[in-house]
């Protein structure tokens, strides 16, 4: 873009007068490596336990199902418990459309402000922090993770990783948006008091699928 191109050159020139590099300069040698994070309790021993305790600490909840077929019942039970049993429509990841959802309708679409519940499918989970990793695509719209009051995230246990560092080799390409989500939305902007449900979901529930099969 022509915009700011003079500034681009003058900023880069000023930086180059310091770095001494010319425009065709080679890639610099990196000289560091990220240390393995060490905690009092070794979180890599039992990833499910570590993930769960981190998630619970930030007001996220977790339940486990044996396989994908068990998801609709788990979702139904969770919504009843959360006082959301009258929800008619679920916004879902495309990969979950084919399950037996019973009376509820499911749609793969961009979320709107009146949407109440989404059931999204995580690309991976990170045990160190209790985080789910969402990748945007035509099957997985980003808005589903942010607009509904209740976000249920499906996580395959086989995709539960120790650290963020183990994620990068699994990602074939960067999606438009890569979202790391750890618990429900919150704010402490008024008098340092934590309130959940600032702009994003008020309720954040992870369903861990033990045997995800070929899915």
């Amino acid at each position: 873009m022509a915009h700011g191109s003079n500034s681009r050159q003058s900023i880069l020139n000023r930086i180059r007068s310091f770095t001494g590099r010319d425009e065709s300069g080679e890639a610099p040698q990196k000289s560091w490596s990220v240390p393995q994070p060490g905690y009092v309790v070794d979180f890599t021993k039992d990833l499910v336990t570590s993930f769960t305790s981190r998630l619970n600490a930030v007001h996220g909840t977790l339940q486990t199902v044996a396989d994908f077929a068990g998801l609709p019942v788990a979702v139904h039970d969770y919504l009843s418990e959360a006082g959301q049993s009258n929800v008619q429509e679920l916004l879902v990841h495309k990969g979950l459309v084919g399950l037996e959802w019973g009376n509820r309708s499911v749609s793969v679409r961009k979320a709107a402000k009146q949407d109440r519940v989404s059931v999204t499918l995580a690309f991976a989970g990170i045990a160190e922090t209790g985080t789910v990793v969402m990748t945007s695509s035509s099957d997985s719209p980003t808005t589903q993770s942010y607009l509904p009051d209740t976000n249920i995230v499906v996580l395959r246990e086989s995709r539960l990783l120790a650290t963020m560092e183990s994620l990068w080799p699994l990602l074939e390409h960067q999606p438009r948006a890569l979202n790391f989500i750890t618990g429900p939305s919150k704010t402490a902007d008024i008098e340092q008091t934590i309130v959940y449900g600032a702009h994003g979901p008020r309720r954040f529930h992870v369903i861990l699928v033990k045997n995800a099969g070929a899915n």
């Binding site: 438009r176 948006a177 994003g200």
Partner: peptide, 24 residues
């Protein structure tokens, strides 16, 4: 910053909406 292990949301943006994307 806030004494958290991680923030609730960390997001990486990689350009605009892609061909078949529903949002963005």
């Amino acid at each position: 910053a806030t004494g958290q292990i991680t923030s609730v949301y960390t997001t990486l943006f990689n350009g605009p909406k892609r061909d078949k994307d529903i949002d963005g």
